[in-house]
Design a protein around this nucleic acid. Structure first.
Length: 920
RNA sequence: GGGCGAAUAGCUCAGCUGGUUAGAGCACCUGCCUUACACGCAGGGUGUCGGGGGUUCGAAUCCCUCUUCGCCCA
């Protein structure tokens, strides 16, 4: 699709909407994002593989700006490596998200007045499936809108048949290795979702509650009682003891005595256990083994009964081992209502000693925010210690680095104290636990394929476990299950291990750490060498963006209004390593102006180029002899090389051979630095200086015009390449309009630039820039109207200065245009004039009769003189200090000496100037 | 309660292993429709680098301490 428009028909503002969709479709059609396993060096190919697996969003999710940030980071890396010549694979996909998705569908059912139980398990699962098929995966389509260059032919889903097989395979392996077991213990239970949760899924939040002090009378000694302090009085019906510290003198004589549990009127013993914190509350703790994990441990140590006193929905009810504990008046009452009733009863019975406000952390369900109820039950667990040890080692020895570095400490801390992982969920949506039990012989076993008869007794009445697996039990296989594991596939050989894992720090434990464990357990190799944890998008009050707060930003709306490139550039520019990105949801215009403005600027540079350079062929950059290059050419080419080198440092290295060395461990991944460097080059160097300098050359003819055209195209082309990973659409659409464009090629597949050796002479253009800047400043200082032409007399006090002055006259036309100032070699006439010193002793004198008055000029120069003198004095002080010259590195001292010479000459010059003007 | 981090311009942040006259974007002020661009151009820094102490020839940078925020874990 060569542009039919002529340059002056290109609109002055980049129209993102008109460009992006068709461009994306073209990329996809041409297979630009497709990875070829055979080309990976691991498969005998000629390209290093570079692989990222997407953190799979929930299948029901809609794109929010957090996904936008996360995906843009990945896309920048992936596009960069693709241009750098790697065989790049970005694996996209979604997560079935057990609890979350089941909740969504249950809500839909509720609107129809139904529950999942009404439908029954099979029908419910079918219902979820069809819901997911119809509405699911929209987020993957939305990712295309922001330019994500994933290989869609490899789209994965955690509940697909292929990935389900991977889940089953690892379950069986772990089961057979005795790393999965069934445990009877207190777990976190969500009474709304009606399922157990892992430790990580039960989130803490600080709450101000109450600490109730309740008196338990001593049986047979009406004068005595023990006061216990509790934050959860409703659980007292499940109390089986009161524990005190064995060395606590207050209670020592009561150990072994019995107490009367109020309300329930049960007798319970006083026991001694050093777990009790004497300083907390009254130093006496009620022990409720079935409803508190610590009490459960105490109960086990003392062989106490463990009565459950709540139904799964957290209404009060007799449960296991609790016959008769819950009075009829409380049965069926919700736990917090029951709490109020019980507190009232205790008060009326005189058992409530006091109530004090109490700050403590209450755990909530990470999916529905319901207060979690600790509950004794049978669950499946993964034994973590054997899996954690190698995962810990991998980070410690540098095979994996975590950025920002400080998160490594968090990771190590967590893995060091890791607890077993509860993987069973009492849900219907998910991978069903592949364990069957034979009712005839009680044989229990995990099967890779559904069994028809018991392997031990041949019975055929096998029953499968009712529970499903934690969603994260499928996610932790993601880096290799998406590549075909457990089969030995070409993809797996070509693309495992992957390279960088990009995600938010919140799921370091949920997901990242477990992937490392699974990768090492199954593949004996780390799943990636770099974990990049990015910040969170927040609003102007630094609040996380969320649906409930209504402070979210819809990335698709941003794409509509400003373009995907504007969204991406703005996000990347604000992406300091691990730093949160602040955006104002109330003012999208302001938030995304930087990206939008820059996209337009780029567009206009392109527009200018196309107008001036035209469509006629340009010389190949390589064919231009160095002698044909002007100072400006040399300068911009050097700036380009610097920019390329800086971008490379900002992004890379992409990988290392072996573990990360100390020096490289924190290197690269500075996406904000990459964005800023590329922006600075294109805008502040190319557009502000080189394009301006090239204008007059383009108006001319002959060889120099051709050189200018070629350099302009080359340099802009290179700039587009540097920016393409961040702003793929506008850069691609400009790139294909360049006269050097070859049909059928894509910027997305063009070579990443490499820096060239510095050309001599580039610094001569700096003198031109200095002269222009100086005149502009004088014009502003003296408020010379822009329309008014002025002249400057160039004064060269010595031979060096004369040589430099020649340079200025050589570029006199450029200076005249950019500074609106004509250069003259004649001595300045007498009278009021503005004076400026340039480097190398050069001097400009601007006779401005009627504008400059002598006194003002003296004041201005005087102020400059004072400032310079001050700095020079400090510098001289340093240089005359023997401690400095003796201890500081010699090259620094030498540099300071050079500076001293320059400053001294400058000050002397300024002084004589002031003297000439008649200053005291 | 334990651990980690941050504090630099009005706002959001760079400033790596100590050595430029402390920077960028946005905002702001002044002047400009200079034939690519007003989503732009030119000029302007508006700062006790959170407070105090220390190490050093030299501290925004290293150490101690205090204050204020934030995050993770129990």
């Amino acid at each position: 699709m060569t542009p039919p428009e002529t340059p002056d028909e290109i609109p002055p503002h980049y129209d993102a909407a008109a460009t992006e969709r068709t461009l994306y479709e073209e990329w996809e059609r041409a297979g630009v994002f497709h990875a070829d396993a055979a080309r990976s060096t691991r498969s005998g190919g000629d390209r290093d593989p570079f692989v990222i697996v997407i953190p799979p969003p929930n299948v029901t999710a809609a794109l929010h700006v957090g996904h936008g940030l996360n995906s843009t980071v990945q896309d920048v890396l992936v596009r960069w490596r693709r241009m750098a010549g790697d065989e790049v694979l970005w694996v996209p996909g979604t997560d079935h998200a057990g609890i979350a998705t089941q909740n969504v569908v249950e809500k839909l059912l509720a609107a129809e007045g139904k529950t999942r139980q009404d439908l029954g398990r099979e029908a419910f699962v079918e219902r979820v499936k069809s819901f997911v098929t119809e509405t699911g995966g929209q987020i993957l389509r939305q990712l295309r809108a922001i330019g994500a260059s994933a290989d869609w032919t490899r789209t994965a889903y955690t509940l697909s048949p292929e990935l389900s097989r991977a889940v089953r395979e690892i379950f069986v392996r772990l089961y057979d290795d005795k790393l999965i077991y069934r445990g009877h213990r207190v777990i976190h239970w969500c009474p709304r979702c009606l399922t157990s949760l892992s430790d990580e899924e039960a989130e803490h939040s600080e709450t101000t509650g109450s600490l109730w002090h309740i008196a338990y009378p001593v049986v047979g000694d009406p004068a005595r009682q023990i006061v216990v302090a509790t934050t959860r009085p409703e659980t007292m019906l499940g109390d089986v003891a009161v524990a005190v510290h064995p060395d606590d003198d207050r209670y020592r004589d009561l150990i072994g005595k019995r107490l009367l549990l109020p309300i329930a009127n049960f007798e319970i013993p006083v026991i001694a256990d050093s777990y009790v914190d004497r300083a907390f509350g009254t130093g006496a703790v009620k022990i409720t083994p079935a409803h508190d994990p610590n009490d459960f441990e105490v109960g086990k140590r003392h062989a106490l009964p463990m009565p459950v006193i709540m139904a799964p929905d957290a209404t009060m009810a007799d449960g296991a081992d609790s016959a008769g504990r819950v009075p009829a008046t409380l049965r069926g009452i919700e736990r917090f209502a029951a709490r109020r009733m019980m507190v009232a009863q205790l008060e009326s019975e005189g058992r409530l000693v006091k109530v004090e406000p109490h700050q403590h952390a209450v755990r909530h369900c990470y999916r529905c925010d319901t207060v979690v109820e600790p509950r004794l039950s049978d669950q499946w667990f993964v034994k973590m210690a054997p899996l954690a040890a190698p995962a810990l080692e991998a980070v410690k020895d540098g095979r994996i680095r975590i950025l920002p570095e400080r998160h490594e400490a968090v990771y190590i801390n967590w893995l060091t104290g890791i607890r077993d992982w509860n993987i069973s969920r009492q849900l219907w949506w998910g991978h069903r636990i592949p364990v069957w039990r034979c009712p005839d012989c009680s044989h229990e076993k995990a099967y890779r394929d559904d069994p028809t008869s018991c392997g031990q007794c041949g019975g055929t009445a096998l029953q499968q476990d009712e529970d499903v697996l934690d969603t994260w039990f499928s996610s932790w296989l993601w880096p290799f299950s998406t590549l075909g594991w457990p089969d030995d596939t070409a993809d797996q050989r070509a693309f495992y291990p992957t390279d960088v894992l990009v995600t938010a720090p919140e799921i370091l434990f949920f997901w990242v750490a477990r992937m490392i464990m699974a990768g090492l357990y199954v593949k004996k190799e780390v799943p990636f060498h770099t974990v990049y944890l990015h910040g969170t998008v927040r609003d102007m009050q630094h609040r996380k963006m969320s649906k409930s707060l209504g402070n979210g930003i819809d990335p698709l709306q941003v794409v509509d209004e400003f373009g995907a490139d504007a969204l991406r550039f703005t996000l990347m520019q604000g992406m300091g390593l691990g730093v949160d990105v602040m955006l104002d949801p109330a003012d999208l215009e302001k938030s995304f102006a930087p990206g939008r403005n820059f996209a337009t600027k780029l567009w206009n540079i392109g527009r200018f180029l196309l107008m001036q350079v035209g469509a006629e062929p340009v010389r190949a950059f390589e064919s231009i002899p160095e002698t044909a290059l002007t100072n400006a050419d040399r300068w911009i080419l050097n700036r380009l090389s610097t920019a390329i080198a800086e971008c490379d440092v900002a992004l890379g290295p992409a990988r290392t051979a072996g573990p990360w060395s100390e020096g490289l461990r924190v290197a690269g991944m500075r996406l904000d630095a990459h964005a800023e460097t590329a922006r600075r080059f294109v805008w502040n160097e190319l557009a502000d200086w080189y394009v301006e300098a090239a204008k007059s050359r383009l108006l001319g003819s002959g060889d120099d015009r051709e050189v200018a055209r070629a350099i302009l195209v080359h340099v802009f082309d290179q700039g587009l390449r540097l920016l393409h990973p961040i702003m793929p659409f506008v850069t691609e659409s400009l790139w294909r309009r360049l006269p050097t464009f070859e049909a059928g090629t894509f910027l997305a597949r063009a070579n990443w630039p490499t820096p060239a050796p510095a050309l001599s002479g580039g610094e001569r253009f700096d003198l031109i820039r200095e002269a222009i800047g100086t005149v502009r400043q004088l014009r502003a200082d003296y408020s010379i109207p822009p329309g008014q032409k002025i002249v400057a007399h160039v004064v060269s006090p010595d031979a060096t200065a004369k040589a430099r002055a020649a340079l200025l006259f050589h570029e006199a036309a450029l200076i005249a245009r950019m500074a609106r100032c004509e250069l003259l070699s004649t001595p300045a006439p007498g009278g009021a004039a503005a004076h400026a010193l340039l480097s190398h002793g050069l001097e400009l004198v601007l006779p401005l009769a009627g504008v400059v008055d002598l006194q003002k000029e003296i004041t201005r120069l005087g102020a400059e003189h004072v400032a310079l003198s001050k700095q020079l004095d400090a510098l001289r002080g340093r240089l005359s200090n023997e401690k400095f010259t003796g201890k500081a590195p010699p090259e620094l001292v030498e540099a300071e000496r050079t500076k001293e010479r320059e400053w001294t000459a400058r000050r002397d010059q300024m002084q004589s100037k002031l003297h000439d003007l008649g200053a005291a």
